[in-house]
Design a protein around this nucleic acid. Structure first.
Lengths: 189, 189
DNA sequence: CGTAAAATACTAGCGTCGCTAGTTTATCTG
DNA sequence: CAGATAAACTAGCGACGCTAGTATTTTACG
């Protein structure tokens, strides 16, 4: 059944092609510019082929978001495992989170801002998303009361800073100062 | 010129009618359901009359948001002036902010989430918005270093909690616990 | 190798969106 | 009452997400 394998591989390649095109288009002109017609033209297929891979535009965005969860989890876990200076794990994690949001703003948007069908804080939550959150919890250090709630508050603060900066509601150039304040408030000592 | 006055008053009434219809429709079915056609039908006028009052849909949403800023500022200032227990001003302000977001989710969305033409942190910032932010700064108490940045971080945390709850990315039922943690972290003593 | 069947991609179109041009109706002025 | 001005309307443009139905290619089999 080598020929079936080839077809499957080609399908998978086209799947990746769509995802890449969607991300590039979003990075260039925002998610509003990601239309099924433009996507189809970018990958040199007709519009309906998209619907053989995805249920619709929302499904494409969810797929991009899922990839984002994996990348974010990887980046955060790097900060917890490669502990050169254990004292500043919290700061490094927060900085890594903000850095991810700054480097992939539209992916971040799909992950955490736009309406999504992805379930959070439930059984169906993607593993990568759970892992990213676990890294946050770990960064707050052991022996904490209510570590999950504490991590949720920290995450809220980080997320708030990201979206308020991205929507130009607070100045982006002061990110460092705010990070310092935030870390100081959540430090365990 | 009494007749011109009457016309102007009728125009102002229709302006309010549009705003009220937009808010009601958004509260019922979300901002996506607020279309110019539905709005026109709700106020019993044809679609293009909307464009004699507003530049477009975004302008209508900005007007709803502006009203929201005024209501939020009023609510927050109430907590700073009616100081029954001065010690808990910070907590009351935070609670009032969260309560506003919970009671007017779609107005909050227009104010702080959706792309907006309203300028933040600049000369053109609406007075009500400045007042609301000033209440946050005041709630953090006097004798603080970098009070604006500190307030921005607090606001980020509050905003993050709101949007993550509204988009069901963190459970809404634990709002109280998170509020307690947040206030404790930002208390001055 | 030829043909029927199944899979696959296409063309065309539906309903809806924000917005606007052009026209008709209503109102005011002389 | 006639003409000018203002204000509403009808109709339509291009684009959107999505889908039904058709044509084409690929597969399986005699």
């Amino acid at each position: 059944m080598s020929i079936a394998e080839r077809k499957e591989r080609q399908r998978a390649e086209r799947y990746e092609l769509i995802l890449a095109a969607a991300r590039e288009l979003a990075e260039a002109d925002g998610w509003d510019a990601v239309t099924t017609r433009r996507l189809a033209e970018l990958i040199n297929y007709s519009q309906p082929v998209l619907y053989s891979h995805f249920k619709g535009k929302a499904d494409i965005m969810a797929a991009v978001a899922t990839r984002g969860f994996e990348e974010l989890a990887t980046r955060l876990e790097m900060e917890t495992t490669n502990v050169t200076d254990a004292a500043d794990v919290l700061r490094n994690i927060c900085a890594a989170y903000l850095d991810f949001a700054r480097s992939r703003p539209v992916v971040y948007e799909a992950m955490f801002v736009l309406p999504t069908r992805i379930k959070f804080a439930s059984e169906e939550t993607p593993p990568a998303l759970r892992a990213a959150f676990a890294a946050l919890v770990a960064a707050l250090g052991p022996d904490r009361q209510e570590p999950v709630f504490l991590a949720e508050v920290l995450w809220s603060a980080l997320h708030g800073m990201v979206v308020l900066m991205q929507s130009e509601r607070i100045p982006a150039e002061d990110a460092e100062v705010r990070l310092n304040i935030l870390v100081q408030k959540f430090r365990s000592d």
